[in-house]
């Protein structure tokens, strides 16, 4: 028993150490900063205050932007699920061998390029006289020009593309784990495809779908690069507002407070979903 305890200790220490240095320490420091009345490293003496948190409630546009970021997160997560789940289903249940490996590789491939480069690539595809526009005009020369760059749909397209692989991979792993004999048994008992999907495949793969949705929703709520580059005058999000506090005016306390408010909102949403998740994951 003691030996097992020691090996568990030895195996987990590097992870805990890394998490402490890379995650817990910076977040603790930022949490502390969010209560300061003046920036750290500044000339003014700083005292503890709640003003930075109060600022969020005194200006209407903060709550508007927070709500906008959350809607964006929900929309992107939903679209990723709609596109990603069928793709994962085909990968896990319809394909095998060489084709499956090749397609999985294609799903993972975007991860190998820099996120910024992918976003700039989208600007070339989506702009007027870009690839989409030219393709449409090759078929329908009389169609009006299609340039959706610098609009809200452009932001959504860029983000869905960025996060789709997470959804496909998490769904794929859940779907892989479903025993094929369950499907055969259902079919043997006369269940049709949509019944099998609804009664067996969806419930059993729900954990993958839920994890994929969380992995998409949480980062999208804080996204700032994609909206700024693709969104034009639609490009402001809670993420860009926080970024500006850090880089433009060096108001770290306000930037930190806004980040923690956003984090609080995200955690509250996840907490609301917890009963549903707990039932599905068979926790507790």
């Amino acid at each position: 028993m003691a030996r097992q305890g020691r090996s568990i200790f030895a195996l987990t220490v590097p992870t805990f150490l890394w998490l402490t240095v890379a995650v817990v320490l910076p977040i603790t420091v930022m949490f502390y900063f969010s209560f300061l009345s003046a920036s750290p490293f500044g000339t003014k003496p700083a005292s503890l205050t709640l003003d930075n948190y109060a600022t969020f409630f005194t200006k209407d546009f903060y709550s508007f932007l927070a709500w906008r970021s959350i809607k964006l997160g929900l929309l992107v997560a939903a679209l990723c699920a709609l596109i990603g789940f069928p793709a994962a289903l085909v990968l896990s249940h319809r394909l095998s061998g060489y084709w499956r490996e090749a397609l999985l590789l294609l799903v993972i491939l975007p991860f190998w390029s820099n996120a910024l480069i992918r976003i700039f690539a989208w600007t070339m595809v989506l702009r007027e006289q870009g690839l989409v526009d030219q393709a449409v005009h090759a078929v329908l020369p009389w169609a009006p020009s299609v340039g959706i760059l610098y609009s809200y749909p452009a932001i959504v397209i860029g983000l869905v593309h960025s996060f789709l692989p997470y959804m496909i991979l998490t769904c794929y792993i859940s779907l892989q784990a479903i025993d094929p004999s369950l499907v055969d048994a259902a079919r043997g008992l006369g269940a049709r495809d949509h019944t099998i999907l609804r009664r067996i495949i969806l419930p059993l793969s729900f954990p993958g779908l839920a994890v994929g949705a969380i992995l998409t929703f949480v980062p999208v709520v804080g996204a700032f690069m994609e909206p700024r580059i693709l969104g034009g005058r639609q490009g402001i999000t809670m993420g860009t507002v926080i970024e500006d506090q850090f880089t433009e005016v060096f108001n770290w306390p306000l930037g930190a407070a806004l980040s923690f408010i956003l984090l609080g909102i995200v955690l509250a949403i996840l907490a609301l979903c917890y009963p549903l998740l707990r039932a599905r994951f068979r926790l507790g």
Binding site: F61, R233, I236, V241, Q245, V249
Partner: peptide, 21 residues
């Protein structure tokens, strides 16, 4: 001043938020 800088940023963010509305 730092106060001007902050108030300019607040104003500009408010304007950009209205662009997105």
């Amino acid at each position: 001043t730092d106060e001007q800088r902050q108030s300019y940023l607040d104003l500009w963010q408010e304007v950009k938020a209205s662009f997105a509305q």
